[in-house]
């Protein structure tokens, strides 16, 4: 009985699949996946290389306070989130540099404080917050033209920053003190990049949600890192993985009628695991052949 029903839904959705791209919201979703892959390709590779994944997680969750504030004031929650994420990013850096509070502790504090502020504001806002779930879990199928325009602008800025300053970013990230001894503008770049990290996180909350956005910034990059070892190559390969994974996840979620954000992340992890097995088998083969050579 259940089997029949699955087969039935499958047939109908296959018919629907052919026409899927004619829906405006699906096109929007594909565009959003494309732009998310670009911004997260650059910024994700940067935070993975610099071991900034935890601070990025903190920024992401702290921005929830801004979403709550946005609901409360009746403005676009994304703008509230942008302010909260930049302030928390700078706050974590300043607090850990200038006080004796350690960085990971500062992250923990701002992470939970942002979430708490968000919950209080949403509670205080009269009426039901309709899109709350989409901010928590992402909803690539409901991105608006405004979201896409903002994503496009940010993607252009990110590409420009990396094209112009790639080497400076690379050198400062690799050895900050050495860069400082060469009078490179280390602090300026650290804050510029922190701002970009915060904005990229916030803009992609619409796609993947607060709880899942970190996956866009880490899983494709870690997968790429299995095959290539140069920051530039990690950026490019992670973009491809990210886009392929998003589109696959998008279609699977449509086909099985399950949440898109979670499906995309599931696909990302699947790709990572397959890649890891491929690398493992390749190394095994290499080892065996070198043993045979002897």
């Amino acid at each position: 009985m259940t089997m029949n029903m699955i087969i039935l839904t499958r047939t109908t959705s296959t018919i629907k699949m052919t026409g899927i791209l004619s829906y405006a919201f699906v096109l929007h979703a594909v565009e959003a996946a494309f732009l998310a892959s670009i911004t997260c390709g650059f910024i994700g590779a940067y935070i993975v290389a610099r071991r900034m994944v935890f601070i990025s997680g903190g920024i992401t969750h702290a921005s929830f306070g801004g979403i709550g504030l946005g609901y409360f004031l009746g403005i676009n929650p994304i703008f509230g989130a942008a302010i909260f994420s930049i302030l928390s990013a700078f706050g974590i850096r300043l607090v850990s540099k200038q006080t004796d509070i350690r960085e990971d502790s500062a992250i923990g504090i701002l992470w939970s404080f942002g979430m708490a502020v968000g919950i209080i504001f949403i509670y205080l806002t009269s009426g039901y917050a309709p899109n709350l779930m989409s901010y928590l879990f992402g909803s690539i199928l409901t991105v608006t033209s405004t979201d896409l325009a903002l994503m496009g602008i940010l993607a252009a800025v990110t590409v420009a920053v990396f094209l112009l300053f790639y080497r400076t970013i690379l050198f400062i990230s690799f050895d900050e003190e050495y860069a400082r001894s060469h009078n490179a503008p280390v602090e300026t770049f650290n804050y510029l990049m922190l701002t970009l990290v915060a904005l990229v996180i916030v803009i992609n909350i619409r796609v993947a949600g607060i709880i899942l956005v970190i996956s866009y910034l880490t899983i494709p990059q870690s997968t790429a890192n299995l095959f290539v070892n140069d920051l530039k190559k990690i950026i490019i390969l992670s973009m491809l993985i990210s886009f392929a994974g998003s589109i696959t996840g998008l279609f699977l979620s449509y086909y099985w009628n399950i949440p898109s954000g979670a499906t995309i992340i599931f696909v990302f992890v699947l790709i990572f695991m397959i890649a890891r097995v491929i690398v493992y088998l390749r190394n095994l083969k290499k080892r065996n052949s070198s043993v045979a050579d002897r």
């Binding site: 080497r167 050495y178 060469h182």
Partner: peptide, 10 residues
């Protein structure tokens, strides 16, 4: 990266 300097950002 040894050639990095203040004026060489771009």
């Amino acid at each position: 990266s040894g050639l990095m300097s203040a004026g060489k950002g771009l």
